[in-house]
Design a protein around this nucleic acid. Structure first.
Lengths: 154, 154
DNA sequence: TCCAATTAGTGGCATATACCACTATCTGGG
DNA sequence: CCCAGATAGTGGTATATGCCACTAATTGGA
């Protein structure tokens, strides 16, 4: 086995994680491409769907994503009429998000494609190992990395 | 335990992987920020450094990254004089990449910051588990997802 | 009641990444 | 020797993401 020929084996956890993410995203993207959605967009529609007209901040937290990044990512989906936003009745700062009927249809359509990718992946690595991997990744995403600032704030 | 309050627990391997990548990247990015580099840039400098004036295509393969994406990512590093490119002597299609002296200095400077992030992460999840995670991710990045096209090409 | 501090989003800007169409080279027949 | 096909990169365009500065609302005191 010529390990030198293998992907860049770096000891960096971050680099390794990103590398895997690039590869896996491309796979899922390819499979659901016929729907016209990217993996992230599909995930976003899903997250909106399972929430109860979630506020943007809520979605951002759930997806462990920057709020402004979420705003940007949402734009194409709004433009294409898959989601719509509206102000919260009790707090006008809050903007809530929901799927349009087209958005729901697109979500359902794409879920069929997604299942294919999901099954294919789990067939390759094993269902149990996939579940273990997700558990580990969920843990990584939930970690509190907090690094004490050089000087503790006043 | 109120699981509903936890990060979006999706069964999607892709979404989970990306979520973790966002979070971890932000952590590494924050820690090495004083160097002025982003995590990906650091990883790229490292990859170039350990290679022997690697060709762009080689780097792209090692990083499991699209060649054109690599080209784009390289630009800020060239602009800031951390890396330079030159044509391969035997095949003028091939463009090779190397670090400049400033690039090497920056790599070394940033490595100190990187170590801090790396150690912090491994202290949180455990060295062995981090190694296991990397192994799993390397495997994911190396998988051959090949999906048979609907109709086998002629 | 009123203002200072906090909270939720927006917009601008920069990097990260991908795909596609295109250009410049090579390479292997014929 | 020459061209058809394969290879390596480039540039354009679009989404993915993050940070920062800024605006709009809300809230908690004094």
């Amino acid at each position: 086995m010529d390990k030198t020929a293998m992907p860049g084996f770096s000891p960096c956890n971050n680099a390794t994680l990103r590398r895997a993410a690039r590869k896996l995203s491309r796979f899922y993207d390819d499979v659901i491409a016929p729907s016209g959605l990217k993996g992230t967009q599909y995930g976003l529609l899903y997250q909106i769907h399972v929430g109860s007209e979630p506020a943007m901040g809520t979605i951002a937290e759930e997806m462990v994503m920057d709020l402004s990044a979420l705003g940007h990512t949402l734009k194409p989906l709004i433009r294409d009429f898959y989601v719509e936003t509206f102000a919260d009745k009790d707090d006008r700062r809050v903007k809530r998000v929901r799927l349009t009927p087209q958005g729901l249809a697109k979500l359902e359509e794409t879920t069929k494609l997604w299942s294919f990718a999901q099954q294919r992946f789990e067939a390759l690595v094993g269902q149990q190992r996939a579940a273990d991997l997700r558990a580990m990744l969920d843990e990584v995403a939930a970690l509190d990395y907090e690094v004490p600032p050089a000087a503790p704030s006043s």
